[in-house]
Design a protein around this nucleic acid. Structure first.
Lengths: 191, 191
DNA sequence: ATATTTGCCTAACGAACGTTAGTTCGTGAG
DNA sequence: CTCACGAACTAACGTTCGTTAGGCAAATAT
């Protein structure tokens, strides 16, 4: 990808995250770049192309993280903490893309949509695997794996709704808090 | 609201939940009702009117629940379990509306949007209050209240993404699992 | 029986949509 | 110096959008 294309992509994402993909027009994007709508088509072949690139780049970044984690030898708690940390890092470091990725992937169509769903399922399976590992090791409660993985991911994904780059919490701090919460829950340990 | 209006509203929501508010046209909605687009305007004054009614009806239902819970004398754990149970019940019993409410409220404009955000904040504050109660009672970990409330709500809201009416889990079972997860976490209690 | 209201229709409006065609202009390569 | 090319432009295409005006028939109220 050329430097200019990357630049335009970033600006597009900055616009798309505001009102969402469907409610944002090509003209909105062009205006933010002080260029003509038609000029965008020198770089992208369609509006959906921008969405597609955004969603798949995010999916790829997350995929790399979870594959890594499940390869290295860690115990389940370490694996989960590492996976959450990587996930939070990817989201916070690409906040615009992350919002589009999480909210707007449904606007993909045809083969792109199918492929995206496959990737998403594979990623979720990675989390289920970590939960299973923990159960096997005897350190996690017997639980509905699918349910647990979905709940974990939902907590983690929701940070795009409230995370502010200038906020007081770093990516690592958020990840630690989330991991603590997910692992230990709200209730005080009985002493 | 007349019976007919309610009927049209329900059909509209059934269409809107599929592709989202912005990507769904008035003509899509009319087609699902086997009527002409213009006829919808005998019942609703605009497309946004449908969104507004949907979002605020959901917000009101949830609001009633949380107010109730914070009034009755319960300990914090009971309060939280009850609040989650009510929330899950409202979501699962109005699944179409719930998806629109959670995903598409951003498409509200002007005063409606402002008012919605106020309601949303008030609702979140209700959850924060429950967390605070638990901390005061000494049964919840000292924690970032705002963070905890957001994490709880995100887990609960995410069920609209995977809940199927014909699935094996009832609303109560889901609420119990969620509450257990949120209160106790994934890790086995040290024995 | 007559008047009013309701619910839907047909037709059409102007605006906004995503996209394409064709062109110009500056830059770097042969 | 010329040529090719990338990146932007102007102009416009056909479509779809949300919405309105006005009418008509059936149901309801007087």
């Amino acid at each position: 990808m050329t430097e200019r294309k990357r630049e335009i992509l970033a600006a597009s994402q900055n616009v798309l995250k505001e009102k969402g993909y469907a409610a944002t027009s090509v003209r909105d994007i062009a205006k933010a770049l002080s260029m003509e709508p038609a000029s965008l088509y020198s770089h992208f072949k369609s509006k959906e192309d921008i969405l597609k690139i955004t969603c798949f780049e995010m999916a790829d970044k997350l995929e790399i993280g979870i594959a890594e984690v499940n390869d290295i030898y860690f115990n389940a708690e370490e694996k989960l903490r590492t996976a959450i940390n990587l996930h939070v890092k990817v989201l916070t470091q690409n906040l615009n893309s992350a919002m589009i990725f999480i909210r707007d992937w449904r606007n993909l169509t045809g083969k792109s949509l199918d492929q995206f769903i496959l990737k998403r399922n594979a990623y979720e399976a990675g989390f289920r695997e970590i939960v299973q590992t923990g159960i096997n090791e005897g350190i996690f409660n017997e639980t509905d794996k699918k349910f647990a993985a979905l709940t974990i991911l939902s907590s983690v994904n929701w940070i795009v709704e409230w995370y502010k780059e200038d906020g007081s919490l770093s990516s690592e701090q958020i990840a630690t808090k989330l991991s603590d919460f997910i692992l230990s829950g709200l209730k005080k340990d009985k002493v």
